[in-house]
């Protein structure tokens, strides 16, 4: 059981929670994730570790309210508890980049920026030159702008509708930067699967190594079920233990999108149960 010590609403659908989890905080590295379960009837969901504080012993998660569990999680407050919180899981990103990387472009899409941010921050702290492109649908959902500015060398913000920053997609900006002569040893793309797929399509002709953080459906997160299997370079990989980061030019994104849609109808039904589950959860916490 972990306690929520800080809650911050980043935008109408994205919430930040900082929880007390000293053992995980001691070990966590950028790119790793946790699995949580809210209560006895709850499902296990994976969330990337957004930040960690080894001294305070806390872990920060940021998530979008997209279904039943994230809705319930988003409704929790400071002082509330989460029944199960396991981690750090998966392999950290840094070793995947190699030791001689000097300049990196981190590309975040929507809530993916919450995961792109710690990546940018840790690479920047290491002395690597970091450019960030953060893309959002429109102005009202922009998150972490100030945090990003403090954690990179150049920050570019795009909105699809042009209500803030530059109008266009992250791929437009990335292509423009590369064509303008910016040399990147690697690109890290984190966001919705179609966005990561198109970032990879953008970098492929330039031969820039592109790392993506995959988000398949997971249950245990420790390699015992294969629910999170993805095809990378023609081989079956389990994202929870072999990843979640992979060479984006080798990933079968269409297969991933297909596998992620298996329970869509059921998820829509579940969301309607939100109200009554919230009451149950509240009752559970009072006891």
């Amino acid at each position: 059981m972990v306690k929520i010590v800080r809650k911050k609403v980043l935008n109408p659908s994205v919430t930040l929670l900082e929880v007390e989890a000293p053992r995980i905080a001691k070990k966590a590295q950028a790119g790793q994730f946790i699995i949580l379960r809210l209560d006895e009837e709850g499902e296990r969901i994976p969330l990337t570790i957004g930040d960690y504080d080894r001294e305070k012993g806390t872990i920060t998660i940021m998530f979008q309210k997209v279904g039943l569990t994230t809705q319930l999680l988003g409704d929790l407050n400071e002082g509330d508890t989460i029944l199960d919180f396991v981690g750090p899981l998966g392999r950290p990103t840094r070793p995947e980049l190699g030791s001689d990387v000097k300049r990196v472009c981190v590309v975040g899409g929507g809530v993916g920026c919450a995961i792109a941010y710690p990546q940018a921050k840790s690479l920047h702290e290491e002395g690597i030159q970091v450019d960030v492109i953060a893309g959002f649908r429109s102005k009202d959902i922009v998150i972490l702008e100030d945090e990003f500015k403090a954690a990179c060398d150049h920050f570019y913000l795009t909105t699809d509708d042009g209500t803030y920053g530059e109008k266009g997609f992250v791929t437009d900006k990335l292509k423009a930067l590369i064509e303008a002569g910016n040399h990147y040893d690697a690109v890290i793309a984190i966001g919705p699967v179609p966005m990561m797929k198109f970032v990879c399509k953008t970098t492929e002709p330039f031969g820039i190594y592109t790392l993506v953080s995959l988000n398949p459906i997971m249950i245990d997160g420790t390699g015992m079920c294969g629910g999170c299997r993805v095809t990378v370079g023609g081989e079956m990989k389990f994202a929870c233990v072999d990843g979640p980061d992979f060479d984006g030019h080798k990933v079968d994104f269409d297969e991933l999108m297909n596998r992620n849609s298996v329970y869509r109808e059921r998820e829509a039904r579940e969301k309607e149960r939100h109200a009554c589950r919230m009451e149950e959860l509240a009752a559970h916490m009072i006891h």
Binding site: D84, V86, L89
Partner: peptide, 9 residues
Amino acid sequence: CDTVVGRTY
């Protein structure tokens, strides 16, 4: 519970 030996500990 919730302790993955090799990762958490």
